[in-house]
């Protein structure tokens, strides 16, 4: 199982080095070629060998939806929370800075899988115990929604990493930008909004894209906390049919297709922000 700590290097080098970059091939984009190959492979397997591949695809398709929902929702929350915490990390307010720094350091020191366990198993138990001591009915009967807990767990974990990306992006700008904005009478928030963040966004866009792809893959961890995502549906199928090779080939191909498409979209967005300049 992939842990949040080693994934950083693996994803980045995988994306940056091994796959062709935009502009290397003038007309046909090799990346889309790869997407098409994977897609064709899936279609071929499903049409030529419907037994069991078509069955597998049908069985896990609702898992694909769950994976996408968990990934996209978590990513949006990660962006919002990560931006706020990133601003906290560059704040001159000692209290805000301190609180956010502790959060970032703590969260980054605990594997994502353990965090998901905490949210799904420990957190509800705390609420129920609290309900018992306070004699508060809604807490006593609290039942954790697996998908919600998974989304909370991923977002809180990933936001800590995102905060560091945002902070690095802001700190990479020359101090003169903030000074010029302030010398024109802009308040700190105005300078952030109109001068600093739009520029930081351009530099951190590739890193955000990488985070998205890693999040998509790490979302498979939620299968352990009762979320019926693609991975969990694959495991369920395997345990009823005993077809490990076919099942995991199919699941792996679907993940690959999703990450390849995501990587492609990220690259397009990146180039768009570059062109504007």
């Amino acid at each position: 199982m992939q842990s949040k700590n080693i994934k950083k290097n693996t994803t980045n080098s995988w994306i940056d080095k091994n796959l062709p970059q935009v502009g290397e091939l003038s007309r046909i984009d090799a990346w889309w070629g790869l997407v098409i190959i994977v897609l064709l492979l899936i279609i071929l397997l499903v049409t030529l060998v419907p037994q069991p591949f078509s069955r597998i695809l049908n069985y896990v398709s609702d898992g694909v939806i769950i994976t996408l929902v968990v990934t996209l929702t978590s990513f949006i929350l990660t962006m919002i929370l990560g931006l706020l915490c990133g601003l906290g990390r560059v704040s001159k307010n000692k209290l805000i800075y301190g609180v956010v720094s502790v959060y970032v350091e703590v969260v980054r020191g605990i594997p994502l899988l353990v965090q998901l366990m905490v949210w799904y198993f420990a957190f509800p138990a705390i609420i129920i115990n609290l309900g018992k001591t306070l004699n508060y009915e809604p807490f006593e009967t609290y039942l954790a929604n697996p998908i919600m807990m998974a989304i909370i767990g991923i977002s809180i974990c990933y936001a800590a990493y995102m905060a560091e990306i945002v902070r690095a992006g802001i700190e990479a700008l020359p101090a003169g930008q903030m000074e010029a904005a302030r010398s024109l009478g802009m308040t700190q928030p105005q300078a952030m909004r109109y001068i600093i963040l739009p520029q930081a966004y351009r530099t951190i866009m590739p890193a955000i894209g990488n985070e998205f792809i890693t999040l998509l893959k790490d979302s498979s961890l939620v299968s352990v906390v009762a979320v019926a995502d693609l991975t969990r549906r694959g495991r369920e199928f395997m345990s009823t049919t005993f077809l490990p090779i076919e099942t995991w080939l199919m699941v792996a191909l679907i993940y690959l297709l999703m990450t390849l498409i995501a990587a492609r979209i990220v690259k397009l967005l990146e180039n768009k922000t570059k062109l504007e300049k």
């Binding site: 003169g176 930008q177 000074e179 904005a181 001068i195 739009p198 520029q199 300049k277």
Partner: peptide, 11 residues
């Protein structure tokens, strides 16, 4: 204020 490094907003 006018700075040595101009500090225009490049975006």
């Amino acid at each position: 204020m006018v700075f040595q490094q101009f500090n225009l907003f490049p975006h």
